[in-house]
Design a protein around this nucleic acid. Structure first.
Lengths: 225, 225
DNA sequence: GGTCAATTTGTACAACTGTACAAATTGACC
DNA sequence: GGTCAATTTGTACAGTTGTACAAATTGACC
């Protein structure tokens, strides 16, 4: 009896799913990576869909808990701009950094979410909507208070862009290295977090009544030839 | 002999791939959607991988041509800020709007790219790197001239975020609708383009020497508690 | 109307998929 | 050391996959 085959199966499932998606990875791939038999998977999890559900439940709770915790700290900051920055870090950092150390990692799990979200896997979709939307809504509310006068549409779209940026940074880091001619390391996650927070800080900050005005005015000036 | 079965197969391939990814869609699915037999696919394309290659070649060239064309127009704008805005639109609009009308659509093809990029499909990866990196590099160069003093790392990372935002806007538009409580339509592509351009405009603009400084200073102020 | 190449169909194949379940193995407890 | 439940293995199954290829169909040209 192996000490923790079940854990190893879950870990390897995340790794393989995050690399190639849900459909392309067979239960036999996961079993082989864990040095075990296919049957062990049906024994421990019942089915492939239930395995996926278990993977999600393993990681979503601690990750969102960490986010809410950091959000709480951020909300104690008085200055609106510094608070905005802290809120964004509270959203991004737990997705990049492992919450419970050694469990397969925050970044790997986030990458898996990104891939499954793109695949449109129906099992995953239901779980994601349930688990993450509530947290996302709490963040949008917090962000709204940092940019007085911002429209809800602007806040929601920017939070959509934030998540998309987050996902793609993990999905295709090599593109960053390639486009920079090798001078920038797309796999440097600390740098990625800093860049992502600064970029979205600027995009949210521009929603403030005055700043938003100038961007919109510029747009119309351009469009009217 | 059907007039244009080959075209129908290509069109349906894009639609199905963009919806569920490469692995989850079988040749029989594509054939059935086209009212044809599996054999017609091997006859016209030889293999599934070659079909995918054909799909890419069909859309990549006109889309990037349109981007370069709009980029050329944008570069004639004197004012740096208005030029920046125009360059961003030149990058985003062709990805959202069909370049050759009725051919399966720019947005649908872009969505397919997004999904395949996430799946890490090796066939797709090689094609994407070849076809798009050159165009992306031209855009980064153009953007650099709009934000004097910006570091290459900032430019490349923001262009990465731009593409990630673009992809995710197409992959998961319903999340926008859901998070806004139904008051914002995530499937409104014109609105998505506007929001995306405005958000990335702000993020690139913040790279200008002075603005970048203040954001960095703020970050350190926050981190040092 | 017969010819012929291009196209479309039908079918067969080996490989792989998720799932089910009987058999073997393990190790703690008496 | 025998017992027994928990775990792991092995194997079988029906369904699907991409691919190959012979047979049927099509339609323009003579």
């Amino acid at each position: 009896m192996r000490p923790n085959l079940r854990e190893a199966l879950l870990r390897n499932a995340v790794t393989l799913f995050s690399r190639s998606g849900y459909n392309a990875v067979s239960l036999r791939d996961i079993a082989k990576a864990s040095g075990a038999n296919v049957g062990s998977l049906t024994y421990h999890f019942g089915s492939k869909a239930k395995l996926l559900r278990e993977v999600y439940e393993r990681h979503t709770v601690p990750m969102n808990a960490r986010r809410r915790e950091l959000l709480g700290e951020a909300l104690r900051i008085g200055d609106a701009d510094q608070r905005l920055m802290a809120i964004l870090r509270a959203y991004v950092v737990p997705a990049f950094v492992s919450s419970s150390e050694g469990d397969g990692g925050g970044a790997e799990f986030t990458r898996m979410r990104a891939v499954l979200s793109a695949e449109g896997n129906p099992d995953a979709q239901a779980i994601i909507a349930d688990a993450f939307d509530e947290t996302s809504r709490a963040f949008i509310k917090a962000l709204a208070d940092c940019v007085p006068g911002a429209l809800l549409s602007g806040l929601v779209w920017r939070s959509q862009f934030l998540l998309g940026s987050l996902y793609y940074a993990l999905i295709n880091p090599d593109r960053v290295t390639r486009l920079s001619g090798g001078t920038v390391d797309g796999n440097d996650r600390e740098a990625a977090v800093d860049q992502l927070v600064e970029a979205s800080y600027a995009s949210f900050r521009s929603l403030r009544a005055e700043a938003g005005q100038s961007a919109a005015a510029l747009k119309y000036a351009t469009e009217e030839k």
